[in-house]
């Protein structure tokens, strides 16, 4: 077990190293931060001076080492454009993205789970096929299209929900939450729904496949033979075993929702990490870009590592051999 943990942690560090190098090289390729900051009017002397101040005159490996050194000390630098510490910007924005991703996950489970169960129980029936087809549509329509349709229907036509922003937020320590005010909750509905739509299909199909598998198992047959009610068989016996892979997949989904919230955030002007990233990209704000890429990588790697380790806990066969027995879904 200890060997497995060590192996996973080493792998995680390698992945983080590669991602951080890529993030860094990428941020040197997207333009000239000095030109972005000073515009076209700066004199060559000003540009050189600012370049030197920002350390841009050094080769990128040297700058990378400085960057990593600072990150290890918890120092992400100062945003070129807003002139505020990057760590402060990110801490300000994190709660918005976490709440959005969390609620979107709840939405996708809340809708996807019943859909999947129904499709499994009524397998072959036209209504089950319809549900599956509908879920494919959900995956196929891009998030921003869904988002804009939602806005025009619920904000412009009906006037029920706000089209942008987080509404009123409440400060709980350093965390700002929109979950405690009516306007905050109303603001959350559309972005979370838009983000959740593509994930609903994933959950529904996973649940259906797992459930069909479970329904074939011997203990379900015996339960049927005992004459238990179908409701009890499906919801208490079969569902419980179906949920194990669903829970692990949800963890990974949270990572995806966190990273892909950027589209929903851009359309709904949701003041989260994704919007910050887009704004930074548009203005070549290298410290912000690097920090967010690294943060997202850390988040993904952490979730994957935890999921891998959880699998090992659940399934003793994995403890010795490593990856071989890992289900495809994870």
């Amino acid at each position: 077990m200890i060997a497995l943990i060590a192996q996973r942690v080493v792998q995680a560090i390698i992945v983080l190293f590669v991602v951080s190098v890529l993030a860094f090289v990428l941020s040197t390729q997207i333009g000239d931060p000095v030109a972005s900051i000073l515009g076209l009017q700066a004199t060559p002397a000003d540009r050189l001076e600012l370049g030197a101040r920002l350390g841009l005159d050094q080769p990128w490996p040297a700058r990378y080492l400085t960057f990593v050194g600072n990150v290890l000390q918890g120092e992400f630098g100062v945003s070129y454009i807003t002139q505020r510490p990057v760590s402060e910007l990110i801490i300000e924005r994190l709660p918005a993205t976490f709440e959005l991703a969390g609620v979107a996950l709840l939405f996708s489970l809340g809708v996807g789970l019943p859909m999947g169960i129904y499709a499994a129980i009524r397998r072959g029936h036209w209504s089950a096929d319809a549900i599956l087809s509908l879920s494919v549509v959900g995956v196929s329509v891009p998030t921003f299209v869904i988002a804009i349709l939602l806005i025009f229907f619920f904000s412009v036509t009906l006037g029920w929900l706000p089209s942008f922003g987080r509404g009123q937020v409440v400060q709980v320590g350093w965390w700002t939450t929109g979950l405690l005010t009516p306007s905050g909750l109303r603001s959350l509905i559309m972005p979370a729904a838009a983000l959740a739509v593509s994930q609903v299909a994933l959950v529904a199909r996973l649940v259906r496949a797992e459930m069909i598998e479970v329904l074939r198992a011997d203990y379900i047959r015996f339960a049927r033979a005992r004459g238990l009610k179908p409701r009890v068989i499906h919801l208490s016996l079969a569902l419980r075993n179906t949920l194990i892979p669903v829970i692990t997949v949800s963890g990974i989904q949270l990572g995806f929702l966190f990273a892909f919230a950027v589209v929903a955030e851009a359309v709904f002007q949701w003041p989260g990490i994704g919007l910050l990233f887009l704004q930074a990209l548009g203005s070549t704000d290298v410290p912000v870009i690097s920090a967010i890429l690294l943060l997202t990588a850390v988040f993904f790697v952490a979730i994957n590592t935890i999921v891998d380790l959880l699998y090992a806990v659940v399934d003793p066969r994995l403890r010795a051999g490593g990856m071989t027995g890992r289900p495809a879904g994870a």
Binding site: I148, S155, V156, P162, S163, Q269
Partner: peptide, 18 residues
């Protein structure tokens, strides 16, 4: 002054009276 980056959202916010 509010910053709304996405064009369609900005227009929607005007049309919905926000």
């Amino acid at each position: 002054y509010l910053n709304i980056g996405s064009g369609p959202t900005r227009v929607a916010a005007l049309l919905s009276g926000e």
